[in-house]
Design a protein around this nucleic acid. Sequence first.
DNA 1: CGGGTCACGTTATACGTAACACTAAGACGT
DNA 2: ACGTCTTAGTGTTACGTATAACGTGACCCG
Lengths: 371, 371
Amino acid sequence: MTEEGAARAGTPGAEARTTGSTGAATRPATAPAGTDTARVTSKDVARAAGVSQAAVSLVLGDKWRGRVSLAKADAVRAAARELGYRPNLAARSLRLGRTRTALLVVPALTTEFFARVYTGAARIAADSGFGLVLYPSPEGIGPARDPFDSARATLDGVIASSMATDALTALYGEGLPLVMLDNDPEDTPAAATVNLDIADGARQTARHLLGLGHRRLTHLAAAVDSWTFHLRANALADAVRAVPDAALRTEAAPLTVDAGLHAAHAALTAPGPRPTALVCDDDILAAGACKAARRLGLRVPEDVSVTGFDDLALATAVEPELTTVRLPAEEFGAAGMRALIDVLAGRPPAAPTTLPVELITRGSTAAPPRP
Amino acid sequence: MTEEGAARAGTPGAEARTTGSTGAATRPATAPAGTDTARVTSKDVARAAGVSQAAVSLVLGDKWRGRVSLAKADAVRAAARELGYRPNLAARSLRLGRTRTALLVVPALTTEFFARVYTGAARIAADSGFGLVLYPSPEGIGPARDPFDSARATLDGVIASSMATDALTALYGEGLPLVMLDNDPEDTPAAATVNLDIADGARQTARHLLGLGHRRLTHLAAAVDSWTFHLRANALADAVRAVPDAALRTEAAPLTVDAGLHAAHAALTAPGPRPTALVCDDDILAAGACKAARRLGLRVPEDVSVTGFDDLALATAVEPELTTVRLPAEEFGAAGMRALIDVLAGRPPAAPTTLPVELITRGSTAAPPRP
DNA sequence: CGGGTCACGTTATACGTAACACTAAGACGT
DNA sequence: ACGTCTTAGTGTTACGTATAACGTGACCCG
């Protein structure tokens, strides 16, 4: 609905190229409905509606309360629609000094998790008339030429996940509003922070396994120095420590399937009694762990239980399906964008939010084998 | 507003202001909108370097060949660096009428493949001083409020994958440069096109399986009406037809693991002789197919071979690892961006490119079982 | 009846940049 | 000596928007 102009689109032949000027200098009036390439400005709308450009700006900016008569306001709106007027964002930004564009900095775009974070943030941004630019930081920002060079000139604010703290801190110091995702509040200062309850996810995982009877756990930890992974390790250790006869070991690995495979192999063949559960820092590692177990002739979950983190599509693609922690990725991004919009509007940002996570129990966990 | 006496820390040297208000007693009230530190403009640089603003623009725009002496040019550059000058992109865009920003339209961001396409395109864009905005089109553009409304005002060009052809065609008709990725040239007109050699990927897959001795194949086809999937189906059918005693059936499914599972189940339990190979339109489907086979008590690849498409991380996460077609996703995006930059520069875009793909042979395929 | 408020608009800027038009002096060819 | 070209600049303008500053009549009220 509302789209009446669709019918005009046709004209596959693009031969009608520009030069619509027709040479008639005396013809100032309402532009022919053709529109086409000539950009229509607020001045054109003003002429068509018989008012000044200022009035157009007032009406379309919804600031005409007692300044323009209803009749003229309607005329302006009609003319704007008729001519297909689109405000020039560059001019508006120049005048206003702000761009209504934000930047989302993510460690790497090629992960499903951050793709979903972006999706959630972009939805909120669009709803508020904001654009959202993405910057996939390759290997921690610094080395390449500073991506934020243009940022300072082009952006109203930044949302960033916990990383590149030095560059981001510098930005924040320059006055650019910054919202941090999953950030240690003492690490990088920010105007607002949104967290996932990562620690609770680790706790739920630990309780689930301990409740099944597991007592020898190995943590396949991400070999990444990031707050979110420290949280997982600490919460897991605390939960295990709460059970007297439970023991926890740790094996570190980069976040790839192969690394998970090797780390799990090491964990399962280490001297001493074999662990009965592998707690992995993400689903990728868990998939690798399952492969390692199977290659050692161990069945998952009968001989060894495996848990993941993130609930990626991968979690249900492997067999058995992974018990994992589902993170509200879209909502995470959305909350970050909302916080940024609040900051930009001068509203006090909502108190630091922590979004709940949920353990999804699937086939990769079971009671440990009877000794 | 409300910010009256905001802490305006005067920068040294800023007092040399020749207000020159011609008689008006009322002070013009310098805008309080200052969100952050005083921005440094080209005029400031000019003053510091002892030249005019025009000279600054010439020097920094690298257009001073015979217009500014080397000494002054160096002075300008030194001053710009000293003051930390960043050109205001909004002003530049307003003046130039272009934004050096492009849009990448993808069907869905939450897929690894398009995340990689973006990464490749963004790298090229950054190298050429372009920004790259992402628009994840949710379920085909139309219904929501037109995302391209602002596009026309803000963007220099668009890169889009084969979809939303009507909206894109309209955009192209309005004169916005458009580069299509994997597009039927007769479907959507575009200034340039970059393709993946999808048909060859399907052919390689078919030859691989036929060479192993398979004669009863089932195609797990994506239930998506897209050129790329039509290509796969046609190329596969052609290749199979070339072998006299080979037969091909088709089972359609949406692109999820579960759908793949169900479709594969249907294929493997259909009346008549069981297919010995399942050719899947992407790795997700293939993962589902492997699950279905295993649940039916069939071993992969001994009883049934499975192939995927895309070579996602998933392909090596499942067991057995998938034989699949590796697509050069980053290079795909990069080529699209290069083509767009060529178009924008007025250079004739390189001839329609077709990027080669590669069959990666892994553990999910083997010779069919002896009858 | 004169000053004040209101409703309704218009004029006139300013944002920061790029580029056109112009000046001015020396070099150079004839 | 004169016109032309080259080098080295500056002054000025325009891009399109949002808003402060400025008029108008008309109406209200003491």
